[in-house]
Design a protein around this nucleic acid. Sequence first.
DNA 1: TAATCTTGTTTATACGTTTAAGCAGAATAT
DNA 2: ATATTCTGCTTAAACGTATAAACAAGATTA
Lengths: 322, 322
Amino acid sequence: MSKVTLKDIAGDLGVSYATVSFALSGNPRIPLKTRQLVLEAAKRRNYIPNHIAQALQSQKSMMVGCLMTDLTTSYFSELLQGIGEIASNNDYTVLLGLIKHSEQHIEAHLKNFCEKRVDGIITSWILPSLHHRLYEINDSGFPVIVCSSYGFDHNLPSVMNDDFKGGRIAARHLIELGHKRIAYGCFLKNVELLRYDGCCAAAEAGGIMKPSLFKTEEMLEVLLDSGEPPTGIVAFSDYDAIRIKHFLDKKGMKIPDDISILGFDDIWAVSPSEYNFSTIAIKRGEIGRQAMEMLLDRVGGRPVENRLIEPELIVRGSTGNA
Amino acid sequence: MSKVTLKDIAGDLGVSYATVSFALSGNPRIPLKTRQLVLEAAKRRNYIPNHIAQALQSQKSMMVGCLMTDLTTSYFSELLQGIGEIASNNDYTVLLGLIKHSEQHIEAHLKNFCEKRVDGIITSWILPSLHHRLYEINDSGFPVIVCSSYGFDHNLPSVMNDDFKGGRIAARHLIELGHKRIAYGCFLKNVELLRYDGCCAAAEAGGIMKPSLFKTEEMLEVLLDSGEPPTGIVAFSDYDAIRIKHFLDKKGMKIPDDISILGFDDIWAVSPSEYNFSTIAIKRGEIGRQAMEMLLDRVGGRPVENRLIEPELIVRGSTGNA
DNA sequence: TAATCTTGTTTATACGTTTAAGCAGAATAT
DNA sequence: ATATTCTGCTTAAACGTATAAACAAGATTA
């Protein structure tokens, strides 16, 4: 076992262990000569500082708890990558709580984080029925940051994708390609309409009709069969965009010749080697990085403001001139 | 801040804090009545045990460090899911070290894990130049377990995919479909040939020719243009299988009518809604679970043996009768 | 020359918990 | 009636570190 402690190396040198502690932490009262000796002895003995003892003493664990859903693996992976990057740079360690969406499961992880005395918690989307626990935890001294690739309702410091701007960018792209009639499609229920609002804003700015909204394939069909069918579609997600493509396939419509389409997320399926769809790429890594930075601010007692991360248009083969 | 300690709740009740500690840990010397009082007071005060102090005292951190590469996000996600599941069930917390493949980066995470006094470390593939560090760390009292979806050279307790059996299962599947001439393709350099060996074993058992091995598209072309072209191909990975499919597309060959093909991994791209390829699914979750179980065994001082996890054949649309 | 400051180190306490050992009083055994 | 065991609790030490306070000796100042 690695049981080498300050006392051991103090014993080697015939000094008190306080001296060793001071030397290692670079206290100026310790002359360079002594310090050198201590460092050598530490290296010789392969001394590894015991962070647990340090944490107990300093009341800082230098750990951040991350509550992550595994709904979309790529989302979770890139977010963690971003969080981990900033965490590492600041000597923080990431505790991972991968959650299924059961209340007990989430609660167990939160409890665990608190017992381990993390300096803060970053969470992605979790069951609304557990939001009150996040508030409690946040209020009881564990700073909580929420981060997500789409907006949801809560009342905590957060870093989110800027859905409104994303929608605006998507619609603006179509408008710049000359499209006059745009539709917005989302097959998920109970999802915020910020992206649609963004489309509407772009439409208004571009002087075209307010985009029509459809939530089912039937509604889309009605639109297509109407006198003035849309020539461009913004989908809530790349998954939705792919689903719409398959629907259009059946109707014999070609992308992008007959109709343009783009979604959100930049999942692997829409990459150039696969569907090759234009998309609004959500900057998951950036969301993660900023969430961790925000947490560091809160830990440091600095004021924070909610942040929106602007997504990025990636033009590929599914959008063309009207 | 959540600064409620044993002393606080001892003060409330007018007993010593040792009594409180005993009561909370269920020591039989404490009568039920007292215990009840303590539990109530703890709840009232919202007492959260300080795991850091417990860890210092017990010399067990109940944390496991996981060193994970993010090469293939789905691999890493499912592995972690498996590790996390067993970890949670045993009151362990996962420390995550997402690594880029730079020596300093990996070394930094390893050092961090040791300082945080993890009870053990689980690592997936890392740079061979750092294997000696894993040995050192393992020898200095931090049990290390290696887990991976394909074999690589090291000398530590491990949980690996059974590549040999995987290859055998893949080839056997083709043989059962009546294929007499099988090829094995792998575009990666420096990769072990266990899967190919498995194919060969199946071929021998099935009384057919030893499978030919190709490592480039040129070599594949030569095979296809030969007098006795293969009718079935086992690819090292699903990525390779897809790449081969695109090559075959160019040659105008149809899957599975003209030729059957299957790879390894069961990545999303080969799922029914996409390429719909037959594949050998590597049980990443299971590898993760067993790795964590193995680590628990080592922490508990129980003897361990390397484990091989048999992958699973998933039959989809890319393999058919010869 | 005495008072003060500086330098290099030690002593002691604290962080929050576990747990072996101790202790007083009650219950039981001899 | 005395010795023993049991019961319910307390005391004290330990885990490994950080750090305020103290201190002895030497250097500087008045």
